[in-house]
Computed example of a mutant assay.
Amino acid sequence: HPLASFNPEWTVRESILEPFRRHRPILRHFPATSEENLITALALAVGVEERLFDRLPHQLSGGQIQRAAIARAISIEPDIIVMDEPTTGLDVVSRAQIIELLERLQHTLGVSLVLISHDIDFIRRLCSETLVLRDGRAVDLIDRLESGGAYTQRFVEAGTW
């Protein structure tokens, strides 16, 4: 739930800039000369109008707040981003847009994604390797869900975990 990760009293802009202000990374992909330049670059990277970042989190739609959360995550250009069910609760159009955004970020920023999801199609599209858990224990480590044990195959054939 991305809304829960934002301070409700801060504008989205303030929340996005907080990790950048704390860590002051040397940016490779967003060589901003100011915080405003960084915000402009991040808005463009995640596909939203920059003016949306001046709103409070509850004033954004589900897809917009998810994009803002992604902007905050990439603001320090991490090597890895961990995402738990990043498309849950989104409408079909927003879900597709977020998946396309994540694919694009993987390629343009070279960021690795660790995705936690029950959505097999989502995992297939974005992940090169999948660790399948059963009751909190690893049961399969597979490549693009092309193989795996009986437990994994049962869910792959059903199309859901």
Score class of each variant (00 low, 15 high):
1 H>K: 10
3 L>K: 09
4 A>Y: 14
4 A>F: 15
6 F>I: 10
8 P>S: 10
9 E>W: 08
10 W>Q: 13
11 T>F: 05
11 T>E: 12
11 T>L: 07
16 I>C: 04
16 I>R: 06
18 E>P: 07
19 P>I: 10
19 P>C: 08
19 P>N: 07
22 R>V: 14
22 R>C: 12
24 R>T: 08
24 R>P: 07
25 P>M: 01
27 L>K: 04
29 H>C: 07
30 F>K: 01
32 A>E: 02
32 A>I: 07
33 T>H: 07
34 S>F: 00
34 S>C: 03
34 S>P: 03
38 L>R: 07
39 I>F: 00
42 L>Y: 00
43 A>D: 01
45 A>T: 03
47 G>K: 09
48 V>I: 15
50 E>Y: 00
51 R>I: 11
55 R>S: 14
56 L>W: 13
57 P>I: 09
60 L>R: 08
63 G>N: 02
63 G>H: 05
68 A>R: 04
69 A>Q: 08
69 A>Y: 03
72 R>E: 06
73 A>E: 05
75 S>I: 08
76 I>W: 01
81 I>Q: 02
82 V>P: 03
82 V>H: 02
83 M>D: 05
84 D>G: 05
86 P>R: 14
87 T>M: 00
87 T>V: 15
90 L>R: 06
90 L>S: 05
90 L>Y: 04
93 V>E: 14
94 S>I: 05
94 S>Y: 04
95 R>L: 06
97 Q>P: 04
97 Q>V: 06
99 I>D: 04
99 I>G: 01
101 L>P: 00
101 L>Q: 00
104 R>L: 03
106 Q>Y: 01
108 T>C: 04
108 T>K: 11
112 S>T: 14
115 L>S: 00
115 L>W: 00
117 S>G: 08
118 H>D: 02
119 D>N: 13
121 D>Q: 13
122 F>D: 00
122 F>H: 09
124 R>P: 06
124 R>V: 11
124 R>H: 04
127 C>I: 08
132 V>E: 04
134 R>M: 09
135 D>L: 11
137 R>C: 12
137 R>S: 15
137 R>T: 12
139 V>R: 14
140 D>T: 10
142 I>R: 12
143 D>E: 13
143 D>R: 15
145 L>K: 08
147 S>D: 11
148 G>L: 11
149 G>H: 01
152 T>W: 09
152 T>A: 10
154 R>S: 15
155 F>D: 01
155 F>Y: 11
157 E>D: 14
157 E>N: 13
158 A>M: 14
161 W>P: 11
